[in-house]
Simulated assay, not measured.
Amino acid sequence: MPKIKVYFSDGSTEIFHEEQSFVSISFIEENNSDDLFASKGKIYGLYSHIDAGLLPSFLELLANSKYFSDVENENIVFSSSAITKIERL
């Protein structure tokens, strides 16, 4: 099963695998207000590209999500901007 190792700016790492699903977390503006509210967005699944492994599908998630969490464990929210390196395993 294809996997990637993701490095974060705080020194932590996470291993993500094919068929793992993530929900993007976006922010919406309330009508006539400057207040922003967090909202679950689109669900992205990791799939393996024939040449690039999981990188294209994971980069698609990052490009469309300021924050994201694993669908199976929404207790941890990851910041897309805190990722410093992605390694194919």
Rank of each mutant, 00 (worst) to 15 (best):
K5I: 05
S12P: 07
I4F: 07
L36I: 13
V23R: 05
A63S: 15
F22L: 05
F27Q: 14
E30W: 04
E87G: 01
A63Y: 13
F8A: 10
S65V: 11
V6K: 00
L61A: 02
F68I: 09
S80R: 06
T13G: 04
F68C: 07
Y7N: 04
A52R: 14
E87A: 01
S80Y: 09
K66H: 06
S21D: 14
G11F: 11
I28C: 03
N31C: 10
E60H: 11
Y7L: 03
S48V: 13
G41R: 04
R88Q: 12
E60A: 05
Q20A: 08
V6R: 06
E30K: 13
F78V: 02
E29N: 05
F27W: 14
D51P: 01
P56N: 15
I76V: 11
L59E: 10
T13I: 08
N31S: 09
V6S: 02
L36R: 10
L89N: 07
N73Q: 09
Q20K: 12
Y7G: 04
L59P: 03
G45Q: 06
L55S: 03
I83T: 04
Y67E: 10
I28H: 06
S21P: 04
D10F: 15
I4Y: 01
S79H: 09
L54H: 03
T84A: 06
L59A: 08
M1S: 09
Y44Q: 00
L59G: 06
F78H: 10
E14S: 02
M1D: 14
Y47L: 06
E74S: 15
E29R: 09
K85V: 11
K42E: 12
F27N: 12
A52N: 13
I83E: 07
G41P: 00
I76H: 00
G41T: 11
S39R: 12
